[in-house]
Design a protein around this nucleic acid. Structure first.
Lengths: 168, 168
DNA sequence: GAACAATTGTTGTCGTCAACAACATTATTT
DNA sequence: AAATAATGTTGTTGACGACAACAATTGTTC
């Protein structure tokens, strides 16, 4: 019964007078995850949360979020794609892509061009400033990727990419 | 210039008359991901989407979602925890945990007990039926985990868990 | 060629989720 | 006793996935 100074309800140690005032509750790891530790989904959820937060923080100066970056990257590499094609390739709903493109078009990063072959669809292109911006975004994204490597290890990151390559 | 029968705007092949009518647009992989292929966050997002959908589908019969499962598992392994402790351990906002517990309590799976030591907090416990249900949930969750192993490979799944163990 | 079906972009709704902010109640600190 | 902090709760905001409906256009089929 090692109930030294551990609050039975919270599992957090009462902060001692001399200690830092409520900085971190150190004993969170004492709480068992049980079978959760063996579930890939749990670890992946936590990891994805961390990785997106770091991406957003690293690209905060240019105000670009992960989804926006993915859309611009694909359009940049494949000019003239339709919205359907981009949505399918990235696993985004075409309804959602409409708003994403509205936002990017307002910022003059992307333009919708009337397609000559299919008058239903739009051909998507980066604007001139969109291409310049994307180069900057990619630099910052690369910096974010280095944060990932620092967090989980360079070799582990590469193995992770290999393992999940079937989802690309 | 290998534009055989590839629609320039969509990147999708025109469905040939004899072929299945608009089943799958097979040539989505032809669209380049560019630098996106080297970003862990992109792969992780796609993977997390897949894994959550499979979890939800596999546990659809008992109507339990990943977050609900994680909450019940932690409470089951650590009876008497406060809401704060559970929220911190799982990385859930305590505001969000309120609704999750409301739902689980309505279904008589979890109960909030007035804490004797701290009258602000609730001690969380599984009900009797909650414990029985959790055993069933864990069986189904294990089945889901086998789906994951089938998808990415048994050894890869274990390496993934090892790589991401620092996020548990 | 006309009727029918499918695709594309768009608009809208619904439910989930993370991130905040504010508040009342209760504990802790000084 | 007064100031400060923690806990549970309520509410709002914005991003997101899933779905359904619609007009315009294209493709198919008779």
């Amino acid at each position: 019964m090692s109930s030294h100074s551990v609050h039975p309800a919270t599992g957090t140690r009462k902060r001692r007078p001399g200690k830092s005032p409520s900085r971190h509750t150190e004993a969170d790891e004492a709480i068992s995850l049980d079978t959760l530790a063996g579930h890939a989904g749990y670890a992946v959820r936590r990891f994805q949360l961390w990785i997106f937060q770091d991406f957003i923080r690293t690209l905060a100066a240019v105000d670009i979020k992960p989804t926006q970056f993915s859309v611009m990257t694909v359009i940049g590499a494949n000019p003239g794609l339709s919205q359907m094609a981009v949505a399918k390739r990235l696993g985004i709903e075409r309804a959602r892509l409409v708003h994403l493109l509205d936002s990017l078009e307002r910022r003059k990063l992307v333009k919708r061009v009337q397609s000559a072959v299919d008058r239903r669809s739009h051909a998507l292109h980066l604007t001139a400033s969109g291409e310049a911006s994307l180069r900057k975004f990619k630099q910052l994204a690369a910096e974010h990727e280095r944060h990932v490597a620092d967090k989980i290890g360079k070799a582990n990151r590469e193995q992770l990419l290999r393992i999940l390559s079937c989802f690309a």
